[in-house]
């Protein structure tokens, strides 16, 4: 019998659509009946969506960029 634990431990395969048909069918049956697992999957997906947005943030400040530029300029200067 499928339990919440099975949903949790198969979540990567479930999200990436890598589960075999039988496992998928059993998990989805449990999901249909389990509100806790439904919220677990929804918040898991949302967490991935939000953390993916961190890629768009800029960390290198103009000051860091300027220091890097000066350093590289001196190293790339022809002898």
């Amino acid at each position: 019998m499928v339990m919440c634990k099975d949903v949790v431990e198969n979540i990567i395969g479930y999200i990436d659509a890598e589960l075999d048909d039988k496992t998928l069918e059993e998990l989805e049956k449990h999901l249909d009946e389990c509100p806790e697992c439904q919220v677990f999957v929804r918040t898991y997906r949302k967490m991935l969506e939000l953390t993916g947005k961190l890629r768009e943030r800029t960390f290198v400040t103009p000051e860091i960029r300027e220091r890097l530029k000066q350093l590289l300029k001196s190293k790339l200067k022809p002898n």
Binding site: C4, E36, V39, R42, T43
Partner: peptide, 28 residues
């Protein structure tokens, strides 16, 4: 690290803190 209890259930551990329906404007 697991979110479920010793019986393998999430009962009472997840739904009370459902934030998935928060508006994107707030989450972003």
């Amino acid at each position: 690290y697991v979110p479920y209890d010793e019986n393998g259930t999430l009962m009472g551990r997840i739904k009370a803190k459902d934030w998935s329906d928060k508006p994107d404007k707030a989450l972003l």
